[in-house]
Nucleic acid binder design. Structure first.
Lengths: 205, 205
DNA sequence: CGCGATCTCGGACACTTGTCAAGATTTTTT
DNA sequence: AAAAAATCTTGACAAGTGTCCGAGATCGCG
């Protein structure tokens, strides 16, 4: 038997959780603009339509808010990336799709990727996000490894490096491309595309 | 003819510059401990033997201090790395030396590398360090490219990717290894060594 | 409608921040 | 040794920070 109080609490919980998401999504945009070092609850609030008191009402403190934002980001991120594992029938097609996908992701939401790298670095200084960041990193690694395995299958070979190394290599290319993209280098996306296309064949024997 | 005033000014300049270096070196250690987001002039001063007013006497403001620290870091960095380009007579030796050198650099000063990555990310948010960071990045890239070329020569082949991509790939491996190292993964250094050794042959034809 | 629960705002608080300046101390010059 | 210049300390200031709270506004249900 579910009591009225329980139902009401659950309803409140749903509503509460919904509002939290709403605030976190707005805060995430502000965070992406500012970066961790320059983000205070007040400036975040100023960048949104909400008051700073409201943020404190829905989030215990600043760490709670940012942690929640990071988790929201993860959800958006894997969803976006997973649609990237397109259906391709030749190795070349897959390599192209992979390069195009990452280049598009770069140009589409550079500020979000910048924030991601920022938070990943911060996790090396503070252990508050460390767990969440590690989880995101691992899910990205798995996402990428699916691509490498698919490429190996299509080219009738086997991957010649670990999932960790494969992810590190792709991530290196992406981060460097992001740096150049934000510094105004026009060819950043094309360079990334080319880099990915040539990297993939190197990872299978 | 050099006037007395000129000489005195130069003497003062030397002394002044010397003291600046001294303060910056101490501040650099504090910065590496704290990270950019948590570093204030006062907390930096508390981590050293100097007063916060003294920092302000030798540096116009916080940005001036950090910029100077970054440049000091560069000097230490290229000096350290360049001794890494050891003399090797076979490709295998060079690959091993390269892997060992980077793994050692990782275990030797992980906090400095952490700071470097932090500042590189911050340069994507603020354009104050952007020039200095880009210069360091380029000098690191050149350092690494010398290794790749040397490896190509020894194995009687030619590099099959751009200096930018080569640097991005190595940097990706290193950064991921640093993340794991600081998270307490015991095998981080060995993994890095292995990753480097297997990456190098993939970059030449 | 009315009333209690929930939500929202804006201000108050204690504290930290960057910056600065007036004086104390040391070094250098005359 | 006196004067001048430099080095350094200490404390003050305004602005910004995280946190908390109380008074309205709004909502949901009897």
């Amino acid at each position: 038997m579910t009591s009225a109080a329980t139902v009401r609490r659950r309803a409140r919980g749903n509503k509460f959780e919904e509002r939290r998401r709403e605030l976190a999504d707005a805060a995430l945009l502000a965070l992406a603009d500012l970066g961790y070092a320059r983000a205070s609850l007040r400036t975040i609030a100023e960048h949104t339509e909400f008051s700073h008191g409201l943020l404190h009402y829905y989030f215990a403190d600043k760490i709670d808010l940012i942690t929640y934002c990071v988790q929201r980001y993860k959800a958006a991120c894997v969803q976006r990336y997973d649609s990237l594992v397109a259906e391709a029938s030749t190795p070349g097609q897959l390599a192209n799709a992979c390069g195009d996908g990452l280049a598009e992701a770069l140009g589409d939401a550079p500020l979000m990727h910048r924030l991601w790298y920022d938070l990943r670095i911060q996790s090396m200084f503070e252990d508050t996000f460390r767990k969440e960041v590690a989880e995101i990193d691992e899910s990205l690694q798995q996402m990428l490894w699916r691509n490498v395995r698919a490429y190996a299958d299509l080219s009738e070979g086997t991957p010649s490096c670990s999932p960790e190394d494969a992810y590190a290599l792709f991530d290196g290319l992406f981060q460097q491309a992001l740096l150049r993209y934000l510094a105004g280098t026009e060819t950043a996306q094309d360079d990334l595309r080319h880099g990915i296309r040539t990297l993939l064949p190197r990872l299978v024997d």
